[in-house]
């Protein structure tokens, strides 16, 4: 019987518990998240004369699919959660943008950190973020998530969620009204439109007037 090919990523039964699994995922370098062969092929096509048409069209298509169906994980922490719920509800409906709020992080693309992160909650937040599959984005909603907000000087408050997870869009406000959050989500969609297939993002966010 042929020996099965060595797997790059160990499977669940190789681990004793969830903590070991998470530790491995945090140490994994960025590179092995994609197949090396696949990267070589797409680079080859891209560098072939005229081949960029294929890769950019494919990028545009996949990014359109990604941005039209961003599912946020329901991660309401504090007051901003109420405005986030209002954004998901009847008047400011985000479902028309394709965003279905989903409770399980394993099936979502986006984490909207709405509320103050404190030192007790930060490891939980990181754990939920780690459970989300790639590609994933994070929106920091409200001044508490941006920088600690009005509670910045408190002994138990994390000065901004970007000390815990990488953030793509910052939405200011206390709390940001649903219009602001919708603006932030639309900016996120513009960012996603520039997402490269290999996972490295285009550097500048498009200018908005």
């Amino acid at each position: 019987m042929k020996k099965p090919a060595t797997q790059i990523v160990p499977v669940w039964r190789d681990f004793k518990d969830l903590q070991e699994w998470e530790a491995l995922h945090q140490q994994r370098p960025e590179g092995d998240k994609h197949s090396a062969l696949f990267e070589q092929v797409t680079e080859g096509i891209h560098n072939f004369p005229g081949g960029f048409v294929v890769t950019t069209a494919a990028d545009a298509f996949f990014n359109w699919a990604r941005k039209s169906s961003v599912w946020p994980v329901t991660f309401g922490l504090a007051c901003c959660a109420i405005e986030m719920m209002a954004t998901f509800a009847s008047r400011f409906d985000v479902e028309r943008l394709g965003m279905v709020p989903w409770a399980s992080p394993r099936h979502s693309d986006l984490m909207i950190v709405s509320g103050t992160v404190n030192i007790k909650m930060a490891p939980m937040l990181k754990r939920i973020y780690d459970q989300m599959p790639d590609p994933k984005w994070a929106v920091s909603m409200g001044s508490c998530a941006n920088s600690g907000g009005p509670f910045r000087h408190g002994y138990f408050v994390v000065k901004g969620v970007d000390r815990v997870i990488p953030v793509d869009v910052y939405v200011p406000g206390c709390p940001p009204p649903p219009e602001s959050l919708l603006n932030g989500l639309l900016l996120l969609q513009d960012q996603i439109a520039h997402f490269r297939r290999t996972g490295r993002r285009a550097a500048p966010t498009p200018k908005v007037d």
């Binding site: 922490l77 404190n118 007790k120 509670f151 000087h153 408190g154 138990f156 408050v157």
Partner: peptide, 14 residues
């Protein structure tokens, strides 16, 4: 509880 402890009582003194 305590996942939203934001130090209100200490901040109120400041």
């Amino acid at each position: 509880i305590g996942y939203l402890h934001r130090c209100h009582e200490k901040l109120a003194e400041t």
